[in-house]
């Protein structure tokens, strides 16, 4: 029983990172209207940006957050330019396949540039422990959760209290109507895509810190988890995507209390499978309907 409780707490921590990934993913899908398969690689680049920053410049978490966000947002710019900009009026699968190609390119270039072997992520968080009853929480977990909550709060304000937020949500709901009220739709999509990728990059860094390791091939697992969380939450609803992320984290960790650790990924996708069987539209309720 105690073990399950401990796994539950671990799950919350890991789930909070998944939530952050899913928030980024849902922002991208919401504003571009397209599923992306380059997200995992964008997160990987974010993690590596933080890794090199910690190695050569400063081993402070805040600097790492900025570096990972900036690097991943730049990747978002490239994804937009290569995979989206020319294809808005074309069939959707063109952009989709383009992101698959882009992700392969980035993954392989990263193996050449960074080396294919797994690296140890420097520990930038001063470790201490907090004992609450039988559960021991370490500093890494606390700070990760705090970072995720802080970033989510900042995003909430951005989306709900600023002009840019209204623009993003308007484009998300109707591109044509957004253009007709004078919103520059393409620039808003570019901004939303970079923002979502930046969030993903920071989430990638947090995962690398959590696992204390990173390699150029971690992207696909990351990307799949983000995808699963966002789909479970209903794809474009940001709060529900975050909820989906936390749920998947918790289910994974409680699952590993009963089955070997190598089954970890099974839980995420079986969960997604069940959600989609029971509620094909995801967990969120559809918008625009009277409660």
């Amino acid at each position: 029983m105690e073990y399950i409780l401990i796994q539950f707490v671990n799950g919350l921590c890991q789930g909070s990172i998944y939530a952050l990934m899913a928030i980024g993913y849902a922002s991208i899908v919401g504003v571009t209207g397209l599923v992306t398969f380059a997200y995992g690689e964008v997160m990987m680049i974010g993690a590596f940006a933080a890794y090199y920053t910690f190695q050569y410049f400063a081993d402070q978490l805040l600097v790492g957050i900025l570096a990972s966000f900036a690097a991943a947002a730049c990747m978002g710019f490239l994804v937009y330019k290569i995979c989206y900009e020319r294809f808005f009026d074309k069939p959707r699968h063109i952009s989709l396949i383009c992101t698959i190609g882009f992700s392969m390119l980035v993954k392989n270039l990263a193996q050449i540039l960074f080396g294919a072997n797994t690296k140890a992520m420097p520990s930038v968080i001063q470790n201490f422990f907090l004992d609450i009853g039988p559960v021991r929480i370490n500093a890494v977990q606390l700070i990760i959760v705090a970072t995720v909550i802080g970033l989510s709060g900042a995003l909430y304000l951005l989306f709900n209290k600023t002009q840019a937020g209204i623009r993003l949500r308007a484009v998300n709901q109707s591109r044509q109507a957004a253009a007709l009220v004078g919103i520059n739709v393409k620039r808003t999509i570019l901004f939303g895509n970079c923002l979502g990728c930046g969030i993903g990059g920071t989430a990638g860094m947090l995962l690398a810190i959590y696992y204390q390791s990173l390699s150029p091939t971690i992207g696909s697992t990351f990307g799949n988890k983000a995808f699963a969380s966002a789909v479970a939450g209903g794809m474009t609803s940001i709060p529900w995507a975050a909820g989906g992320g936390v749920l998947i984290g918790v289910i994974e960790n409680i699952g590993t209390a009963f089955l070997p650790n190598s089954y970890r990924d099974v839980f995420a996708f079986v969960f997604l499978f069940i959600v989609l069987l029971l509620r094909p539209e995801g967990l969120s309720k559809k918008e625009g309907i009277r409660p």
Binding site: S174, A178, V181, G288
Partner: peptide, 21 residues
């Protein structure tokens, strides 16, 4: 009409103001 369904009435109006920066 194509109003923004999940933006509030007030936010819909604010979106309308974007046309004149």
């Amino acid at each position: 009409r194509q109003i923004f369904p999940s933006l509030s009435v007030h936010e819909n109006l604010l979106a309308g103001a974007m046309g004149r920066p």
